[in-house]
Each structure stands twice: as C-alpha cells, then as structure tokens.
C-alpha cells in the first residue's frame, strides 16, 4: 500500500476514534475533486459549494459505514455527493437553473480562457452546456467515468447500483452527449 493510502487510513481511524481534526485533513485532501464533481452536478459554484459541503458532512456522520475494501474514501464521498445530487438537491437545481444558466456558463467560459485549459472557449461552453443538459441519472456516471476516472465497477459501488445499470447509463449519456455536440449543431446543441 502507498504512503498516501496509509495516511488516509490513519486519518479515517482517527476520525472514528473521535478526532475531528483528522476529518479536516481528509476534506482538504479531497475538496477539489468533490467540489468539481458537485459543480458538474449543479452547474453553478454556489450550489456546488453547498452540495460539496453537505457531502462531506454526510460522510462524517456515516463514517462507520465506509468500507475501504469497497473503494477509496474519495470515491465513497463522490458517491454520497452523487446521491445527494440525485435526491434532495434536485429541486434546487431546477429552481435556479433557468435564472442562472447564462451567467454560469459565461463564468465557466471566462475561467477556461484564463486558465488556458481550452483553446476554444466557445467549444468549452458548448460541451459544458451539453453536459448540463443530461439528466442527472446519466450525467453522474458520465462525469465519474470520463472526468473522475472511475471504473464501471467503482461507479457501481459508489452509487450502489449494478454494473449493468452503469454501463447502460454510460452508453445512453455518451450517445446523447456526442449527438448534441455533433458539428453543425448550434450553441447548446440545438439544431
């Protein structure tokens, strides 16, 4: 096992023993990954922060349920985050999506350009918009697979669903995403 793995295992053991400070170490370690995933689920930084925060709080309260042999702590928290996104946060997304959509994508585009992460900011916006347009049930596995690099098995374990279901959702999400991003489609995938 790696030093990083052992360090994390020690932190988790310390949390379980009642040392809350150890959990701060775990949050520090994984906050970017969880926040980025939450952003992809919510589509805006404000809700992403709330969602990431809630996922970590939930992880802390359920730490006894975490089983290292079933996956990494990071993947476990991502799974919690995904379940929250599918459940109680859904209504918030719907309520805010319409009013914030334009501003959020504009912000995303500016950040992409500033960070030099994309040569074509317009394309980034299209991809982001197409991803946001996927239903959460498809977006979750697509992001976990293609952005967070989880295997089908890891996704299945994180979400508590079967591998067949993951494969099916990945296929459907992939198909929809690529279809929306076909050359010749307008902004946001509209023909």
């Amino acid at each position: 096992m790696t030093d990083a793995y052992n360090e994390e295992a020690q932190a988790i053991a310390a949390c379980r023993a009642g040392t809350r400070e150890a959990f701060a170490w775990l949050v520090d370690r994984h906050r970017d990954a969880v926040y980025q995933f939450a952003w992809r689920m919510c589509g805006n930084p404000s809700d992403a922060e709330d969602l990431a925060q809630e996922a970590f709080v939930r992880a802390f309260t359920r730490l006894e349920q975490y089983a290292p042999e079933r996956g990494t702590f990071r993947n476990w928290v991502l799974g919690i985050c995904a379940n929250l996104a599918r459940g109680q946060f859904r209504w918030r997304q719907r309520a805010r999506a319409m009013t914030r959509r334009f501003a959020e994508h504009e912000q995303l585009r500016i950040e992409a350009v500033e960070a030099g992460q994309a040569s074509d900011a317009g394309r980034v916006e299209d991809v982001s918009r197409a991803l946001d347009a996927l239903p959460v049930s498809l977006r979750v596995p697509v992001v976990l697979k293609y952005m967070e690099d989880l295997s089908v098995q890891e996704i299945a374990r994180s979400l508590g669903i079967g591998e067949s279901a993951v494969k099916m959702r990945l296929a459907r999400g992939r198909e929809r995403l690529l279809d929306r991003l076909k050359p010749g489609r307008g902004p946001g995938g509209e023909r």
């Binding site: 959990f23 969880v34 926040y35 709080v57 394309r123 980034v124 991803l131 690529l178």
Partner: peptide, 24 residues
C-alpha cells in the same frame, strides 16, 4: 468524449470549504 470533456475547467474548491465543513 475524453477529448471533449478534458477541455472543461476544473475549478478549485473555495479556500474556506474545509473550515465551513468543520463548522457544520
């Protein structure tokens, strides 16, 4: 799909996220 999604930005979490989680 990998090419398309790899171009998306990966924003860092707010600096005070850990503090806020611990406060919660």
């Amino acid at each position: 799909l990998v090419s398309l999604l790899s171009g998306l930005p990966r924003p860092s979490a707010p600096a005070d996220l850990t503090r806020r989680v611990m406060a919660r």
